[in-house]
Amino acid sequence: MTNPWTGEVGLRLDGKRHVAKLTLGALAELEAGLGTGTFIELVERFEAGRFSTRDVLMLIVAGLRGGGWEGTADDLLRVEIGGGPVEAARIAAELLARAFTVPEAG
C-alpha cells in the first residue's frame, strides 16, 4: 500500500510490487542526471505532453531509488514494468505530481 501524503506511488517490476517516491535526494540525483536543462523544464515537458521515454525512465529510476531500490537505469531496462510503457508514463507523471502537491482529503 502506498501513502500519497508522503508522495509514494506503487508500481510492479517483473510482477513484484515496489514503492517509488521523489525524495529530496532522488530529486537531486534526477536533476544531476538531466545533464542539460532544468527540473522545471522536465515538469513543463510533462505538462505539455512532450516528454521522452528517457524522461520517463529517469523519473522512475529516481522514484524507485527514493523508495529504497538500489538498482540503476540499466537494471530498469531489463525488467517488465507492469502495465507497459503507458503505465510507466502515468507513474512518472504521478511521481512529479505527488512530489509537489498535497493530496486532497477525501
Rank of each mutant, 00 (worst) to 15 (best):
Thr2Pro: 00
Thr2Gly: 10
Asn3Ala: 04
Pro4Gly: 06
Trp5Asn: 08
Thr6Asn: 10
Thr6Gly: 06
Glu8Cys: 04
Glu8Pro: 02
Val9Gln: 05
Val9Asn: 03
Val9Ile: 06
Arg12Asn: 10
Leu13Arg: 07
Gly15Thr: 02
Gly15Lys: 08
Lys16Thr: 13
Lys16Gly: 11
His18Arg: 01
His18Thr: 06
Lys21Arg: 13
Leu22Met: 04
Thr23Met: 05
Leu24Lys: 09
Leu24Gly: 00
Ala26Phe: 00
Leu27Ile: 09
Ala28Pro: 03
Ala28Glu: 11
Glu31Pro: 06
Ala32Asp: 12
Gly33Thr: 02
Leu34Lys: 05
Gly35His: 04
Gly35Phe: 01
Thr36Val: 15
Gly37Phe: 02
Thr38Ala: 08
Phe39Cys: 12
Phe39Asp: 05
Ile40Met: 15
Glu41Ala: 15
Leu42Cys: 08
Val43Phe: 11
Glu44Phe: 14
Arg45Ser: 06
Phe46Asn: 04
Ala48Met: 15
Phe51Met: 13
Ser52Met: 13
Val56Glu: 04
Val56Phe: 05
Met58Asp: 03
Ile60Tyr: 01
Ile60Thr: 02
Ala62Lys: 06
Gly63Pro: 04
Gly63His: 00
Leu64Arg: 01
Gly66Met: 08
Gly71Thr: 02
Asp74Gly: 08
Asp75Glu: 10
Arg78Cys: 05
Glu80Gln: 11
Glu80Gly: 05
Glu80Asp: 12
Glu80Met: 10
Ile81His: 02
Gly82Lys: 08
Gly82Arg: 11
Gly83Leu: 08
Gly84Thr: 06
Val86Asn: 11
Glu87Arg: 15
Ala88Lys: 11
Arg90Met: 13
Ile91Glu: 07
Ile91Phe: 14
Ala93Asp: 10
Ala93Met: 14
Glu94His: 14
Ala97Glu: 10
Ala99Leu: 07
Ala99Glu: 04
Phe100Asp: 09
Glu104Ser: 13
Glu104Pro: 14
Glu104Lys: 13
Ala105Asp: 10
Gly106Phe: 15
Gly106Val: 13
Gly106Ala: 12
